[in-house]
C-alpha cells in the first residue's frame, strides 16, 4: 500500500527522506498522501506549499507542483497562489514554529479571510531543524536547548487559535492515529474555506531525549495512551484533560469563502 503511494505521489529519486530515525513526520506525510489518494485529487489540480523547518522539507519529496518558501510565509505564498488560481487545491504543510511563531500573523489573517486553503501543521513541539529550541507549542515546564531551566512560555493551542481567528474547519490528529488523522485531513481538504489540521508528531531526537520521553516507540505509546477522542473529551472535566491530546474534528462552520467573494467583485467591476 505504502509502496503504491510512493510510486504514485513521491519523487522516488530523492528518497530516502532526511528526517531522523523515529521522527513522526513521515507518518503524517503518508497521511496527507493517503488523504489525497482517497479523495482522488488530480496532481495537476493541487499545489503544495511549505515554509521552513523539518515539516517543510516534506514538499521536496512530493511529485506535485511544490514550493518550499521562506520561514513563516507559507500561508502568505499560498494566499497569492489561491488568489491567482482559485480553481486549484492549495495545501500548506508547515510546522509549529513556522505556523504559530514566525508565521502566526499569516495564520490568523488567512483564517479571518476564510480563504480556501488547507493547512496541515506538523507539530513536533520543538524546533528540530536548528537543534531543539522551544517552540510556541513546547509545553510550559519542558526543557529545550534555549530553555535549559525549563520553559516558562505557555503553549499555543493551534486549532483554538485558528478557530478564534475565523477558521471554518479545525481538527487535531496524531502520528499514532493514522486512520483517524487521514480522515481529518480529507475532511479539511473537502471543506470550502480555511481549514487547519494540527498533527501532533513526535521528535525523539530533540524533544524526547531532552525531556526523558524515551525513544520513538515510547513516545508513540505515550500518544496512544494519552490521546482522547474529542467526543469523549467533551464529557470529561477540563482539569482531567490537562496534558492530554484531544483529537478529532474540533470545529466546523460555514462562512463565505474569500476567492468566491472576490469573483463577485470581478463580475461587478468588469465592463458590461
Amino acid at each position: 500500500m505504502a509502496g503504491r503511494l510512493i510510486d504514485k505521489y513521491m519523487r522516488g529519486m530523492y528518497l530516502p527522506h532526511k528526517w531522523c530515525a523515529g521522527c513522526g513526520n513521515g507518518i503524517i506525510l503518508r497521511d496527507v498522501i493517503q488523504a489525497v489518494d482517497n479523495l482522488g485529487l488530480e496532481k495537476r489540480d493541487t499545489i503544495i506549499v511549505s515554509g521552513i523547518g523539518c515539516s517543510s522539507r516534506a514538499v521536496g519529496y512530493l511529485d506535485f507542483d511544490t514550493i518550499h518558501t521562506t520561514h513563516g510565509r507559507a500561508i502568505a505564498f499560498a494566499t497569492g497562489i489561491k488568489m491567482a488560481r482559485p480553481d486549484m487545491k492549495v495545501i500548506v504543510l508547515t510546522g509549529d514554529g513556522d505556523a504559530a511563531a514566525i508565521g502566526g500573523n499569516h495564520l490568523i489573517h488567512a483564517a479571518r479571510r476564510n480563504i480556501d486553503i488547507t493547512v496541515v501543521v506538523f507539530n513536533n513541539n520543538i524546533y528540530g531543524m536548528t537543534g531543539g529550541q522551544f517552540s510556541p507549542t513546547t509545553p510550559a515546564g519542558a526543557y529545550a536547548s534555549t530553555a535549559p531551566y525549563g520553559s516558562i512560555d505557555p503553549d499555543f493551542d493551534i486549532p483554538a487559535l485558528a478557530k478564534a481567528a475565523g477558521a471554518t474547519y479545525t481538527a487535531r490528529g496524531t502520528a499514532y492515529h493514522v486512520l483517524q488523522t487521514t480522515k481529518l485531513i480529507e475532511a479539511a481538504i473537502l471543506h470550502e474555506g480555511f481549514s487547519v489540521v494540527e498533527c501532533v508528531s513526535i521528535c525523539p531526537t530533540y524533544y524526547g531525549r531532552r525531556n526523558r520521553k524515551g525513544g520513538a516507540v515510547e513516545m508513540m505509546k505515550w500518544q496512544r495512551d494519552n490521546a482522547v477522542p474529542v467526543e469523549q473529551a467533551r464529557k470529561i472535566p477540563p482539569a482531567e484533560l490537562e496534558g492530554k491530546i484531544v483529537y478529532g474534528g474540533l470545529w466546523r462552520c460555514e462562512r463565505p469563502e474569500y476567492t468566491r467573494q472576490y469573483e463577485a467583485i470581478i463580475n461587478s467591476a468588469l465592463p458590461e
Binding site: I47, V49, D65, I67, T69, T70, G72, R73, A76, F77, A78, T79, G80, I81, K82, M83, A84, R85, M88, N105, H106, H109, Y262, I266
Partner: peptide, 23 residues
C-alpha cells in the same frame, strides 16, 4: 485580483505565489 495583506512580508510573499502560477 487585488489583495490587501496583513503586512509587507505577506505582500511580497503573495506576489511571488501568484507569479509561480504564471500571473
Amino acid at each position: 485580483r487585488f489583495i490587501q495583506m496583513e503586512d509587507e512580508l505577506a505582500g511580497i510573499a503573495a506576489v511571488i505565489g501568484a507569479s509561480v502560477v504564471g500571473v
